[in-house]
Design a protein around this nucleic acid. Structure first.
Ligand SMILES: Nc1ccn([C@H]2C[C@H](O)[C@@H](COP(=O)(O)OP(=O)(O)OP(=O)(O)O)O2)c(=O)n1
Ligand SMILES: [Mg+2]
Ligand SMILES: [Mg+2]
Length: 937
DNA sequence: ATCCTCCCCTAC
DNA sequence: TAAGGTAGGGGAGGAT
């Protein structure tokens, strides 16, 4: 909010204002005292059962704040940092004000009318207070807050309050309402977390590899009042950001301004929105369209024109030539019969349509692609034709750039690719390698997050959940994929001799059909697009660049950590005692060291460590490994050094976060072209309720699975597997059987036989700890589990968990597909690189983290009324240096939470509260190894 | 019973 | 070197 109108105060008004000013601070003070009185004190004076005291008291405080706001405005002074609380409220109000055409924003109010307006608002406020008092106690602070200015609620506000009634998230409803609003809000927002509003009204979509990465651009946009769109939505996206453009993309972007990323960075530098004209990427004439459509028409008759056209909202890449289908066709025929034949128990697995991703791409396709290859600047040399094609399909510019950057890729040592040069996404900016890998450095947080795979998959998961939410509201009954599916079904029928399969005919009407779709070794599959030579070999995606070897960390004691780890395993999840500290925090005596590898036997026999100087162990984690590597026992999440022992020939490829995200989007868009009954599970995985889809198209689940998998493989170059069953449980179990690159329908009649044999550890919700407990009870399979009674299980594991085990072990599961999920909490945590020297360091970092949480809250328009701080503290007997470089080592976890006077998304407020939690927890700053901040209702 | 806080566990 | 995040379900045990 910029002050354009700064009247100088007359003396009388100044005096009057001063009184108001004092009054408001007194009010504020009283409020703070009140709000922070513990419940127990209140109960001492008989106020125990007064519900929602904070809420009740919030109104007077708003009164004071409004007065304060207007007085300050009147003086032309906005110093919102006076107290954090004040700033929150000012923000809230100005936010609401400027969003609507209704009342004038404070800075536009003529000085002489101040009092009138203030009084007007006061009376409005009182009405609203009276009214709200009658409302149920769950009515939230900020929904009243937004009503205070006394204006008719706008559309967006109506949307907000609709949701606020039901939930604790003050004043904000379902994600959709929030998201729809986000753009508007950011347009006018004056949040102090924002560094500026340069990009108000600007909404960007980032295509391909860009100089600041898409992640950083998103961050920048968020910080400067702009908006980042994950999908290329017409009418929302105002600018497409790209550094290079494949010809096929020019077509998709023809309705948008395509601008270089420098436009963003230089605008920020200049402090204002520069014209994008000088930064336009191309001033093109579209000769590309002709060749593009040539590629399009190369499809088999199956695909109708509309089926091939990407939907407007989709990010689908428009290169849709069909994979030749002949060779698959022949195999399918007997196989699908087999699958529908009931007796063929263990042979129900259907590989009938393994999508051909390998090198057997048909030559004519290759040629055709080459003919239409964009521009001449493509270096064929380093890549075989297939991978080139796939790259242009799936990762577009990134891959093209990469091929230019790395002309010498010829002599890769067989075991380790020197591929850093070919990985644009993981090498974002050369200068940042200087950043210290420890908290305290101002760049640490962003640097860490930029490289954290877990951060990325979490973020993407949330984004896809949000995206699926938006799909629900779109309710466009238009599914371009369905025609293709119908067509496909007819062809299959004809091939079968016009007979319905047993599979489809036996499907009762009431029976749900759930499909679980999951990409095969996702990170590896995507990575292989850029490293085709690794295909078919044991491959892992990891940061480790050094063959799984690493120098030992001086002062660390891996043997000790290993011993503790084993001890932990022995105790098998037994609860440690939880002594209560004087602050009320409880302590967990258990080590939390590296649970990820729990499912593998921890076997150090090969390692006499640290004795053997020749043996080094890389503690970098493997994000994903190929199925070839899995044959040797390598698993996702395993340490590289360990994996190297199991599989000495293991090759490594670097991360390509941009590539994963791109493939994920295509996956989601592809499924969304058939149905919107989707539950997003993660960036590589989803659940699809096919019941309606199949009823509509008349096709069978396996036909859909086959078409879908072909679709995905051809658009992305990566394979997916599908499991089908009558419930989420069964679909997921079926997927396990289908993998890799397969599909499997677990027929109802086979369920009981099937489930009996399944290991209990494969049930959802049964992880390392539960497996351990069960195993102690002599339970290994679902069959074993079935022998226990419901009450026995509930007694042992609690009512809910017991019930789940009981039902799941019988193949029963009635959880619905949840297409819409409301976020309940927002958190940020770092358990890596945390090494503080002083308390001040720790405080500073907690404040940084508060900024991060605040940014995330604001980005999705939420506020939390509660705050939890979790610390990982080096266990007193653990060595100071961890085996894993900058890892957290063996720790105790502490957590402590507090309830704020009101919901907030303000960084200052969150930071202040978190710091006081930190101090209350009395942990030695030098021993901190991890920090988490969680904001919730 | 039901709620609250501090955990633990699980999944990707 | 290495980038061990994040959201949600739910149990234990105490308070209401
Ligand atoms: N401990 C883990 C587990 C998973 N992932 C990432 C990398 C995986 O590629 C992606 C998807 O996880 P999946 O469980 O689906 O595993 P994959 O896709 O790698 O293999 P699968 O074929 O079994 O699905 O999540 C990770 O970084 N760390
Ligand atoms: Mg997967
Ligand atoms: Mg998955």
């Amino acid at each position: 909010m910029t002050q354009e109108h700064r009247p100088s105060p007359t003396p009388e008004r100044a005096i009057y204002g001063y009184v108001l000013y004092l009054a408001s601070y007194i009010g504020l003070g009283l409020y703070l005292v009140w709000a922070y009185i513990p419940d127990s004190w209140l109960s001492a004076i008989g106020l125990t059962y007064w519900p929602q005291k904070y809420w009740a008291v919030a109104l007077p405080v708003y009164l004071c704040v409004i007065i304060l706001l207007f007085y300050l405005t009147y003086l032309g002074l906005i110093f919102i940092n006076t107290t954090p609380l004040t700033s929150v409220n000012i923000i809230t109000d100005s936010h609401a004000n400027t969003q609507d055409p209704g009342p004038l924003p404070p800075d536009a109010i003529p000085p002489l009318r101040d009092l009138d307006i203030v009084e007007g608002k006061m009376s409005t406020r009182q009405t609203s207070k009276r009214k709200s008092n009658g409302v149920s106690a769950s009515s939230s602070d900020s929904s009243s807050a937004s009503k205070i200015p006394g204006k008719a609620p706008s559309k967006t506000e109506a949307a907000k309050s609709k949701g606020s009634d039901s939930g604790g998230w003050a004043g904000f409803g379902g994600y959709m309402a929030a998201k729809k609003q986000k753009h508007d809000n950011q347009f006018n927002s004056n949040h102090e977390g924002l560094k500026s509003c340069i990009f108000e009204g600007v909404s960007i979509y980032v295509n391909g590899y860009t100089k600041p990465t898409f992640d950083e651009l998103r961050r920048l946009m968020m910080e400067h009042g702009g908006h980042y769109e994950q999908y290329l939505r017409k009418r929302v996206v105002t600018h497409v950001i790209a550094t290079a453009l494949a010809n096929s993309k020019i077509h998709s972007f023809r309705d948008f301004q395509v601008v270089k990323p420098e436009w963003i960075t230089e605008s920020i530098k200049a402090g204002r929105l520069l014209s994008h004209a000088p930064y336009k990427l191309y001033t093109r004439q579209g000769n590309s369209l002709a060749s593009f459509s040539t590629v399009l028409t190369r499809s088999v008759s199956v695909s109708s024109a509309d089926g091939s056209e990407p939907t407007e909202s989709a990010d689908t890449i428009s290169l849709l030539s069909q994979v030749p289908e002949e060779e698959e066709e022949e195999e399918e025929e007997p196989a699908s019969k087999e699958n529908s034949a009931k007796g063929a128990k263990s042979k129900n697995r259907v590989d009938d349509a393994p999508v051909q991703i390998l090198d057997d791409f048909s030559p004519e396709f290759e040629d055709e692609w080459r003919d239409n290859a964009p521009d001449g600047d493509f270096e064929e040399e380093s890549f075989d034709a297939f991978s080139s094609a796939q790259k242009s399909v799936s990762t577009s510019n990134a891959a093209l750039d990469a091929s230019k950057i790395s002309p010498q890729k010829t002599k890769d040592p067989p075991n380790s690719l020197n591929n850093s040069a070919t990985s644009p996404a993981s090498k974002t900016s050369p200068s940042k390698s200087a950043a210290l890998p420890r908290a305290g450095d101002p760049k640490f947080l962003s640097e860490f997050y930029a490289h954290s795979r877990l951060h990325h998959i979490s973020t993407w998961g949330a984004e896809f959940r949000a995206y699926v939410n938006t799909l629900q509201k779109e309710n466009s009954g238009n599914f371009p994929g369905r025609d293709r599916l119908r067509q496909f079904h007819v062809e299959k029928m004809v091939a079968r001799g016009l007979q319905e399969t047993l599979e489809s005919s036996r499907r009762g009407k009431t029976q749900r059909v759930i499909m679980h779709v999951d990409m095969d070794c996702f990170f590896v599959s995507v990575g292989l697009l850029n490293h085709p030579k690794c295909r078919g070999k044991p491959v892992a995606v990891t940061h480790s660049r050094n063959k799984g070897m690493a120098e030992p960390i001086p002062g660390s004691d891996p043997a000790f950590e290993k011993a503790q780890w084993e001890k932990r395993r022995e105790s098998g999840g037994k609860k440690g005692k939880k002594p209560t500290t004087d602050t009320g925090a409880t302590m967990d005596l258990d080590s939390d060291e590296n649970m990820d590898e729990a499912h593998t036997e921890w076997d150090f026999r090969v390692h006499a460590w640290p004795a053997g100087k020749d043996t080094f162990h890389s503690w970098a984690e493997i994000a994903s490994c190929s199925y070839e590597a899995r044959q040797s026992g390598v698993k996702n999440g395993m340490f590289m050094g360990r994996a190297r022992q199991l599989c000495p020939e293991l090759m490594t490829i670097p991360y390509d976060f941009e590539g994963y995200n791109r493939v994920s989007k295509i996956l989601y868009d592809t499924v969304a072209s058939y149905t919107h009954d989707i539950e997003a599970v993660s960036c590589d995985e989803m659940l699809v309720d096919c019941t309606d889809l199949l009823a509509d198209t008349g096709s069978t689940p396996l036909e859909f699975a086959e078409l879908l998998r072909k679709d995905v493989a051809q658009k992305t170059g990566c394979t997916a597997s599908c499991g089908v069953g009558s419930s989420i449980l069964l679909a997921r179990m079926a997927t396990r059987k289908a993998k890799p690159n397969g599909q499997f329908h677990l027929l109802q009649a086979d369920v009981l036989d099937f489930i009996k044999e399944q290991p209990a550890k494969d049930l959802p919700g049964v992880g390392w700890s539960m497996t351990k407990k069960l195993s102690k009870m002599g339970i290994e399979t679902c069959g074993d589990l079935q022998k226990l009674t419901l009450s026995a299980l509930q007694k042992e594991f609690g009512p809910k968990t017991g019930q789940s085990l009981y039902r799941f072990s019988r193949g029963e599961d009635d959880r619905p597909i949840r297409t819409e999920k409301e976020r309940k909490s927002v958190s940020a945590e770092v358990n890596y690189g945390i090494r503080f020297e002083t308390d001040a360091d720790a405080v500073k970092f907690v404040e940084e983290l508060a900024g991060e949480v605040s940014t995330r809250l604001k980005a999705i328009n939420m506020r939390g009324r509660s705050l939890t701080l979790k610390l990982m503290v080096r266990r007193s007997d653990a060595p100071t240096e961890t085996a894993k470089f900058m890892g957290h080592g063996i720790c105790n976890n502490l957590s402590k939470s507090t309830t704020l006077p009101m919901a907030t998304d303000d960084a200052g407020m969150l930071g202040k509260e978190a710091v006081s939690l930190l101090k209350a927890m009395k942990a030695n700053s030098a021993d901190l190894r991890g920090v988490r901040m969680l904001s919730w209702d």
